[in-house]
Design a protein around this nucleic acid. Structure first.
Lengths: 233, 233
DNA sequence: TTTTGGTATACTGCTAACAACTTACTGCCG
DNA sequence: CGGCAGTAAGTTGTTAGCAGTATACCAAAA
């Protein structure tokens, strides 16, 4: 506990004091969102504990959190499986996302400021590079970042918490869907986000709500097109 | 493992197969909502485990769930305390509740059916008895039941999950507030719910959204009147 | 009187081990 | 050949205990 130790840990990784449960949660959430853990995969506490180099309890807590986030479902006394929401649930989630994102859009028009313009413009510029590179995964990530940025602009803790939680529940599907888009459809992503910025800038709350609804519905339609019918419980 | 054991447990408590974690969660949530555990109270795992007759882990899991529900807050390596949302957070929660409950109202007008009429009428009738008896706690419970009934009518799992979670976060405050209402203000609760039923019945979604917004705002105003300024972190 | 150093307490985070339960398999009997 | 019972393996739910760390208190010195 000399000053060196303190300095090292403080400088190197200020919040490495994070618990193993937190680390497990993060690792598992990431594994699910990247597809390393695919829908239907069994999450066996003992196995994951071994892979993560910890005991079962932190893993157990992580699985519990992910269950409450809706990414994992507990099968009755059988363990937990990575959850694949049926199309009907995707529709439900989207319906609520629309309602909440419209509220976000309304607030963003009201709170619009130069800083917002800068942040979102930068993200759209990076999207353009993504389109040039045909890098669908990167586009998907930037799309997520764009919306996260709007949530921050909306400056509403509870709203952000709920809308981000909902988006995570369909994040994998959105990402997969973007991965399937044709080359000539990619520029449409740029247009969509430029349209959003335009209505934010214009300051018309009603128009902003409409544009946001269209935007979310487009994403859902893309998901359901490839997903309905192909879904197997 | 004989049939007697099975039969006994089955009859005595059909879902006693519930885990200790579930039971602990339920008991603690109830204690918080009744005020048996007051805001600021420390939740010490060892103590609660003793009181509930179980070991620390199920209690720990329960505390974690309640933390994610927003009823409890973890103090840094200090334990967990029953959370008292500051007025600003009450306002945030209410803002989202309005948005979601308006969606509920819209769906209820669309899905209105004789069964809905029966259910809600019965609840309002029971409220009238509550008003006659000046039983504020009962009125508060019936108000919660009325809204829970509308959520069921709206038939939307994700919506119900989110709106009920939000309401739980201010349930204690709502209950306390109703407890402070003057006798001659109590009939207003009946009127409010009759108005809601009227617009549901009329089938006008826009009017239903408006009425619901007013209804939620009234509740929030009551909370903030007695709560703003009196709040101490 | 105030501040600082040290000590003791008490809590959480985690590990390892136990017990109950479910499921799948294997062998036997009809 | 098919069905059923019994057994074995594997997984979760739970317990008890250990280690690390923050906090509070108390004493001593400036």
């Amino acid at each position: 506990m000399d000053s060196l130790t303190i300095a090292t840990s403080t400088l190197a990784d200020p919040i490495t004091t994070r618990t193993l449960s937190d680390q497990a949660t993060e690792r598992l959430r990431e594994a699910i969102q990247t597809g390393a853990l695919a829908p239907g995969d069994l999450l066996v506490e003992r196995v994951l504990a071994g892979q993560l180099g910890m005991s079962r309890v932190p893993v157990r807590e992580a699985i519990q959190r992910l269950t409450e986030e809706g990414l994992v479902k507990r099968a009755a006394s059988r363990g937990a499986v990575v959850y694949l929401p049926p199309p009907s649930e995707v529709e439900e989630i989207t319906a609520i996302r629309i309602v909440l994102e419209q509220f976000v859009a309304e607030r963003v028009t009201q709170l619009w400021a130069p800083a917002a313009e800068t942040t979102l413009t930068a993200l759209v510029d990076r999207m353009r590079e993504g389109v040039r590179a045909r890098d669908r995964h990167r586009l998907s990530r930037l799309d997520a970042e764009f919306h996260a940025a709007t949530w921050r602009i909306a400056a509403h803790g509870v709203l952000m918490e709920m809308v981000s939680s909902l988006r995570r529940r369909v994040a994998r599907l959105l990402d997969e869907t973007v991965g399937l888009m044709a080359d000539d459809a990619l520029p449409g992503i740029i247009d969509a986000h430029e349209n959003l910025m335009a209505v934010f800038r214009a300051g018309d709350a009603v128009e902003a709500r409409d544009e946001m609804r269209r935007h979310i519905e487009t994403g859902q339609a893309r998901i359901l097109n490839v997903y309905k019918g192909r879904y197997q419980p």
